[in-house]
Every structure is written in C-alpha cells, then in structure tokens.
C-alpha cells in the first residue's frame, strides 16, 4: 500500500492560498528529501500530510486510507520543526521520549517490556542514554532536537516525517542520526525529510522534491544543495540540459528574486 498519495493538494492559511496543485506519491521504503527556500511551504506540506493542516482542496490517502478515515497513527512518526522541547513543568528526557510510545500503548496500561526496550533504543540512537534522567530544559538546543527525534523513533513508525531534524545538531550526531535512519530504511520504513542541508544524510536520499512558492518545482533524482536554488530548476527540459552558469567572479551580483538564502 502506498504510504502517501496526495492528489492536487491545496492548503490555505486564514484564507490565503499557500500550497497549490501539489501531487505527491511516495512509495514504501522511499527516502524523500523535501527541499526549498524559507517560506516555500515545506513545513506546510508536511503538516498537511500529517493531517495537522486541513486540505482546502485535493485528496490525501495514507497507506491507502483516506485521511478522514485513517486511524493507524502508530504507523506514523513526526519530528516537528521546533526550537525546543520544554514546557511549563520539568520533564525528564526519558518522559519526553516515552510519550512517543503512546501510539502503541493502550489506555490505562503500564509500559510493556517492548515499550521500554523501544524507548531505550531510541535514546541510544540519538546518544542521550546517559542523560535520560535529566530535565529536557537542562539540555542544549541540539540535544533537545535529538530528544524530539528519539520521541518519534520510539513509536517505531513505518512512515516518518522529519522537519529539519538536524538544525543545530553537530556533525557526529548527524552521522548518528543518518545511521539510525539508514537502519529504519533497511527495515522498510518510508522517510520524508525536510532540510536545508543534507550533510551526512545525502547518501540516503532516493528522491528530491523541491518546493517553490507553494508548488512543487522539481521532483526527481537527488540534487546537491546548490542545485536546489538554481533558478532554472523545475522548468521542464531545461534543467537537465542547461549548462549551469558559473558565477565565480568576486564582484557583487544581483541574485534572482526567486533565490532563497543559501
């Protein structure tokens, strides 16, 4: 069953159209990198795909079930784009990660041994095992981000959305995350990753989808971080053959208005 099938999806936020005409079909086991400039609609698309933003138009099917009837949420993991993991009351790293296991827990039941093992695994993967008893508020920003990744991994999802999971995470830990995602991929999980810099994750990507101003500008083979911002990207029959302009002069140049920040 196809994990994601979005046809002609549109999202409006307070009446203002943000995403238009988005078609996206992601097959089981695919690793899709969702790229694009700031404000191009990557997070909005992920939020639409997880049901957090209603579609103004179009149809979304998750694992072959229409979103309205979908209730297999334990198959889905989500790492939101977020600055921190804190709230008004202290919470330990373990507690935050354990809340990711809720999808698989029945009401009023204690954690099973499998639950505990999954939580321990997730903590191990992001390298926070020795800080499990610490409060999340005592962690650095990157460590909090890693706790949120562990929270999603704890649910052992089959389809996982990660919205800029490596923002603020150092290279050794990006490598650890890449390793964890490779493991998930080997187990057959489908992964949708939003990022500005693929870094160590580049080797895992099967397919790149580039958003521009709320539309899909490119959908195909993986791209380098530079090609994403190429103004010719997405124009049919040009980007494959068009020789990329070399701009190595040191004089300041006017950049294309469509170009985002590097």
């Amino acid at each position: 069953m196809t994990p994601i099938e979005l046809t002609d999806g549109a999202v409006a936020i307070s009446g203002r159209p943000i995403l238009r005409g988005v078609d996206l079909r992601v097959e089981t086991g695919e690793f899709v990198a969702l790229l694009g400039a700031n404000g191009s609609g990557k997070s909005t698309l992920v939020r639409a795909l997880t049901g957090l933003r209603p579609l103004a138009h179009g149809q979304l099917r998750l694992f072959g079930t229409d979103l309205d009837h979908f209730d297999d949420w334990q198959r889905i993991g989500y790492v939101p784009q977020r600055a921190g993991a804190t709230s008004g009351v202290p919470a330990s790293v373990w507690e935050v990660v354990a809340s990711g296991r809720l999808t698989r827990r029945r009401l009023l039941r204690r954690l099973s041994r499998a639950d505990r093992a999954a939580i321990d695994d997730a903590l191990e993967v992001v390298g926070l095992s020795d800080r499990r008893r610490d409060g999340v508020a005592q962690l650095s920003g990157g460590q909090q981000q890693r706790a949120l990744i562990a929270r999603a991994l704890a649910g052992e999802p089959e389809l996982i959305f990660l919205d800029e999971p490596t923002a603020g995470v150092d290279v050794p830990n990006q490598l650890a995350l890449a390793e964890a995602l490779r493991e998930l991929k080997l187990r057959g999980a489908t992964i949708v990753l939003v990022t500005h810099e693929l870094g160590p994750l580049a080797a895992l990507v099967d397919r790149a989808v580039v958003m521009r101003d709320g539309r899909v500008a490119y959908d195909g083979a993986p791209l380098t971080d530079h090609e994403v911002h190429d103004p010719w990207l997405g124009e049919p029959h040009t980007h494959h053959h068009h020789p990329r302009q070399q701009r190595h002069d040191h004089a300041p140049h006017v950049s294309s208005p469509l170009e985002g920040s590097p």
Binding site: R47, T50, G51, L52, D71, W73, Q74, I76, G77, Y78, P80, R82, A85, S87, A91, E95, V96, S99, G100, L102, T103, R151, G155
Partner: peptide, 14 residues
C-alpha cells in the same frame, strides 16, 4: 502529559 507537552505531536500520535 503528551497533549500538554506538545499538542501537534499528540495529534499526529493519534
């Protein structure tokens, strides 16, 4: 706890 900690995550958790 989950709902009070992170509403959006809780929603995606079903």
């Amino acid at each position: 706890f989950a709902v009070s900690q992170d509403q959006e995550f809780a929603r995606v958790a079903g």
